[in-house]
Design a protein around this nucleic acid. Structure first.
Length: 589
RNA sequence: GGGGCCGUCGUUCAGCCAGGUUAGGACGCCAGAUUGUCAAUCUGGAAGUCGCGGGUUCAAAUCCCGUCGGCCCCGCCA
């Protein structure tokens, strides 16, 4: 019997029982005749007492024990003396007086100590991730993710969804992210791709009459990493037939609310605020705003048209715009601090950043004050008051939104405007169907090529593609894109039409997506769905610094596994089997 | 592909700006002491290719150039 109980579950009620516990030595305090060991397992800590007079043999063995040794002990649970109770420990009222101890495994001194407030850097933690995972905090995050997955399955099963696995070895598709490729041994010079998402398969499942599908699906994208992006990640992927947008939004809200409530007891609002793409861009300069703080972009284009400041006026006259941020209390900032903001704005892509300090009685302090009419300005800035700082960018709408959107985020953090215990989910709706890509000189999908245009904008496909709205939606939480989806095209004709617009040649469409077009011709129901990033969801729910904290074995920014050191060279014979030869020439040869 | 921050005993940091002792502290580790600790304590000890390569210099952890690695960001991510 290696154990009868778990450390961490032992309470006053167990006093008098004889127990066997196994776990890791979390700490050791040797007082000579008496020796304390904190024994740790996933559940928690229990103090073990070794007394040299009561149990000299056990005490003798215990004196050789070191941190992270794996041991098994037996003994009796006793109440601690009154003055030795540890109120910081759930098991602090009791201890186990050991009669026997077995060392199950020794451990060399560790590269870093296993404790929640780790001193070790992330790279050393990652190299010894299995030690890092012993920390209660990491155990908690693993358990949280498990609970969330269970909850997701519960909710979706109760709503009639069928959980289905789709292929990992699949077909490379044009557009989208770079594929991870897998060579086929039996088909020389041909390759599978790892799925960027199960998109096409879930649509085919709808054609297959599955009606409601979900999968907690691993996805792969060979793109550069970020704090919220890993090359392999997990999506909560779902698809429904005979469905409209409203049903998907409501269902998703239900799912997210349930996960928050049942894993962390957090009550999110009944329905999430909805904004159009145009609204969030205009108001926050980004399609994934963090609504835990206000700080909206103020439109000063109309004001600028009538102003004497030439830069503002001509920008607006030539199709640009002027927008600003009102920083509460910012008039008190030093000149050097304001200059720093100007530098940051330039880093973000602005040509310049105009600043205006609003003083007592709306007296303006600014190098451009003489061009500005304070009374008029006040009318356009109902939220501004004396003591505030106005920061303006005049440029094309794209630049203005990009710069102010990023400045807004910067100030949210810099001025600690973010209410960090708050949750701010929102929907972004009515995305444009296409954007124009200057590099390739053609239209590209904002979402993906299978997204259905809104019914009333179908006529615009040929006349004004950029004005076509997609039936697509993104779920945003605290400034992160949690997921997105759309109603799909279920007509082969319309799908072909969209491929044409995207410049995908007929034969290419046939070759890459022929199976989809054919399926759409054979009785495809109207359908749509959504995919939510499980890793990002867990990062937010777990309040962690990065997505890596909720992935047990994440990759570094160079997309390598610091623990196994994958990827790595392979034996030439393996390449031979696959008919593959590297063209790589190292730069020093 | 580009910008930024970082790299010094096992770990984490100081030292670098302004070059010059035996590169220092904390935690950990090792040995001894210690019968109520829980960040135990006390005494003693070991432990460093200052990421790597080159340059400047009488002399480089320190200055310069390059390079590798980690992180953040831009590009990229239908």
């Amino acid at each position: 019997m290696i154990r009868t109980h778990r450390c961490g579950e032992l309470q006053k009620a167990h006093v008098g029982q004889t127990v066997t516990l196994s776990g890791w030595v979390d700490g050791r305090r040797d007082h000579g005749g008496i020796l304390f060991v904190d024994l740790r397992d996933r559940q928690g800590l229990t103090q073990i007492v070794f007394d040299s007079e009561e149990q000299p043999a056990a005490h003798q063995i215990a004196s050789h024990v070191r941190n992270e040794y794996v041991i098994e002990i037996s003994g009796t649970i006793t109440l601690r003396p009154d003055d030795s109770v540890n109120p910081h420990l759930p098991t602090g009222e009791i201890e186990v007086r050991a009669t026997t101890i077995t060392i199950l495994n020794e451990a060399k001194p560790l590269p870093f100590t296993v404790e929640d407030d780790v001193q070790a850097s992330e790279s050393i933690r990652m190299k010894y991730r299995y030690l890092d995972l012993r920390r209660p905090k990491m155990q908690g995050l693993l358990a949280l993710r498990s609970h969330a997955s269970q909850q997701i399955r519960n909710v979706l099963h109760s709503k009639g969804f069928v959980e289905i696995e789709t292929p990992i070895l699949t077909k490379s598709t044009p557009e989208g992210a770079r594929d991870y490729l897998v060579p086929s041994r039996v088909n020389p010079s041909e390759f599978f791709a790892l799925p960027q998402s199960p998109q096409l398969f879930k649509q085919l499942l709808m054609v297959g009459g599955v009606d409601r599908y979900f999968q907690i699906a691993r996805c792969f994208r060979d793109e550069d990493l970020r704090l919220d992006r890993q090359p392999e990640f997990t999506q909560i992927d779902l698809e429904l037939s005979f469905v409209e947008q409203e049903e998907i939004l409501t269902l998703t809200e239900h799912l997210i609310r349930d996960v928050f409530y049942h894993t962390k007891g957090i009550q999110l609002q009944d329905s999430f605020p909805r904004y159009t793409y145009d609204e969030v861009m205009a108001r926050y300069g980004t399609d994934k705003p963090d609504l835990r703080f206000a700080l909206p972009l103020e439109n000063l284009s109309e004001f600028s048209q009538s102003s004497d400041f030439k830069v503002f006026r001509t920008t607006v006259e030539t199709g640009g715009m002027v927008k600003g941020l009102v920083i509460k209390g910012g008039a008190a900032f030093t000149r050097s601090r304001v200059d720093h903001f100007v530098d940051i704005a330039k880093d973000f892509g602005a040509k310049g950043l105009a600043w205006v300090k609003i003083l007592e009685n709306w007296k303006l302090d600014s190098v451009i004050a003489k061009f500005l009419n304070a009374e008029t300005l006040q009318r356009f800035l109902p939220n501004a008051e004396p003591g505030d700082l106005l920061l303006c960018v005049a440029d094309t709408p794209t630049i203005v939104h990009q710069v102010l959107g990023r400045l807004r985020t910067y100030f949210g953090e810099e001025l600690t405007l973010i209410q960090t215990d708050n949750w701010a989910p929102l929907w972004v709706l009515d995305f444009p169907m296409f954007e124009y890509d200057d590099a390739s000189g053609r239209y590209i999908s904002l979402h993906h090529p299978f997204t259905s245009p809104a019914r009333d904008s179908i006529p615009l496909l040929d006349t004004a593609p950029l004005n076509v709205r997609a039936q697509a939606y993104d779920l945003v939480l605290n400034g992160f894109e949690l997921g997105g989806g759309s109603l799909r095209i279920h007509s082969a004709t319309l799908q072909q039409h969209v491929f044409d617009l995207l410049g995908i040649q007929k034969d290419e469409a046939r070759e890459k997506f022929g199976f989809l077009l054919e399926a759409l011709e054979l009785g495809a129901p109207p359908h749509g769905g959504i995919a939510l990033g499980l890793d990002r969801l867990m990062m937010l729910l777990g309040k962690t610094e990065s997505i890596r904290d909720v992935i047990p074995f994440p990759k570094t920014q160079k997309a390598q596994c610091p623990l196994t050191e994958a990827p790595s060279p392979v034996d030439p014979s393996q390449l031979q089997d696959l008919f593959i030869q590297s063209t790589w020439k190292s730069t020093d040869s």
